[in-house]
Design a protein around this nucleic acid. Structure first.
Lengths: 197, 197, 197, 197
DNA sequence: TATGAATGAGAATTCATTCAT
DNA sequence: AATGAATGAATTCTCATTCAT
């Protein structure tokens, strides 16, 4: 009897994921201005009003989707890196992880780019988001301490690690570029040349 | 009579520019989905229907605005570079030009970023747009021929020149980073280290 | 077992009252168009679906709430009046009762006004409602028989008893008027002057 | 030529009136909660968006409609009254005017009642609205000065003039009461009895 | 009895665009 | 060339109600 009263229709996490997935796909194919809540609902196979059970409004949904996607990406990027490893090994691991993530996550990656370059970003940036990259900061700081990395502004260093790959990824998805083994090796060399002392 | 016509054309260009300017500002502050034709018209001080005298429709306007802005940027970037100059000098000039453009053109720059990372881009990319960067391709090719630049894929090289600065520019506009002389010099060093043989 | 059932019924009445109370408050502060079932549920501390256990639908609930409130008011109005008392004494008692009710029941009173002047009223009027005022009709009829009250249409008489107070009550709640002893005495005099022969 | 430039599509006051009329009819027949902007538009024969050319939003429209209707009513009520006339004559004129207005304006009258008893009223009350009744205040004040009217609170006096008729009007529209000549005469007598010294 | 999840229909409002001048 | 009025279609979001437990 007790059980009977306790039970109720639980929120279905599948629904949330379906909403996220539909949003990313639509955003990537049609852009912010053409991605409406009803289109998202239709693609996710739910009613428009259902979205409002999981999120306060469209903004709230987009921001949570961004944070969720960004978190998944940064987890993947730093997996296998370790503050006991050699700095350059970590650097190389990071780059390979990032490329792996990109290859496996075309749509989430493109969504992140679009979001990051939209005014939505500034609203999220203040909250959190950049916190995902503290391991990166730790890495370059250690590299500087150990005298292996140029003694320049952190931002300068970081901008030479992630961003060239990000740019190449866009070419990759437009099939103008390939992440061959040689290209990846070259990328590591160039990145390291840029930041090493 | 001549005067009459000149006056007309002068007025036109004013209106077109006002529309462009209003669009960029709105797009940067509110994003694609909140930038409507009537808002643009109001900010530009014209009637919504006036926009349709200058442009076929919203899409047409955005694309022409992108192309126009991009052209202005690339003109500025390559000014003073020359295929007779030393490759490294050209490289340095390019970077300094780009930073100058960024500093003087916050709103156009941010608009370009937003547009480039949106699905609008793919519609424009096919038409033209990348043509603006042929001087860049010429430069790296010459560098390779002269044995000064790494013999790696062009895309790899280009991605290490423009993109780190682009990334830093965003930090700059969020007031998290400054383009001091030292930072600019470091940037040039790092970029050159990345691509030089 | 008895206790069990009593507990259940007790709980029920609590919920029903909570729903009624929340509805009245919302209706008075936000009006018919902004008072939704989910808002009512939230304010009453129950689930939206719980309301449907007690009432068929929203209309049914509103009508029952009106009838319930109206009944409480008329009970209070006629308490202490008696067909053996002097007609004028009954008249005075009625007015004092009504003012007492108003003072003690701001929200229910305002709800009644709003409901009475809405198209909802016509749906309820046919069912019942006016039956609550038969004691009033009895009173004026007796007054006429005894030659104390003007020999005019009942409606004319009734409209001079309750309505001026109703109007003043609205001013009272807007803090533009006070039910001082003098005002109440004046009110009784004026009402009696209006209807007396 | 100059004329050509000056001309444009002017706002059509007919449209505004059609919107007002449709709103009143719908509000009276279906109430606040069932009267949607699209229903109003359909009944007025315009597009929903057209309403937003004339009014900021629904609230704005309702308030302006109320003020407009109230103004028309008060103009009618005080027509033919004059501060040189005898107080009692003015009083009688006022009542006859009000009844005439009611008979000729069923829908506007019922709308005013519904609006006045809704929470919308409090938003409007602060702005203006009661200003329409200054002639009434002038009248009772003069009556008191001349020693013809009871020396009681203005609110008390006013509540015995307009409100009984308002109440009877509702019965009239439900066909439960008729404004016969005798009834009107009785009404005047009773009202005057209530307020006269 | 009681619930929170779920929903299609409909709410207010804004959209890109065209019309009439 | 220029405009403000006008609009049907589409927007975000809320509604009354039902479902599953």
């Amino acid at each position: 009897m007790t059980v009977y009263y306790r039970l109720m229709r639980y929120k279905d996490e599948n629904k949330k994921e379906a909403i996220y997935k539909a949003t990313i796909l639509l955003l990537n194919s049609e852009g912010f201005s053409s991605t409406s809540m009803s289109k998202i609902a239709k693609h996710a196979g739910v009613s428009p009003s259902t979205i409002y059970i999981y999120f306060e409004n469209k903004d709230d949904m987009l921001k949570k989707l961004y944070l969720d996607t960004k978190e998944k990406m940064s987890e993947r990027m730093f997996s296998g890196t370790n503050e006991k490893n050699d700095v350059k090994d970590n650097f190389e691991k990071l780059i390979r992880n990032y490329i792996d993530f990109i290859k496996d996550n075309k749509e989430p990656f493109l969504f992140l780019q679009q979001f990051t370059n939209s005014p939505y970003m500034s609203e999220v940036a203040s909250t959190s988001g950049s916190s995902y990259f503290t391991p990166m900061y730790d890495l370059v700081r250690r590299g500087k301490d150990e005298g292996k990395i140029k003694n320049v502004s952190d931002d300068l260093l970081l901008s030479h690690i992630e961003t060239p790959i990000t740019e190449l990824a866009k070419h990759y998805f437009r099939k103008e570029f390939e992440f061959t083994n040689k290209n990846i090796d070259d990328l590591i060399t160039m990145g390291w040349d840029a930041i090493k002392k």
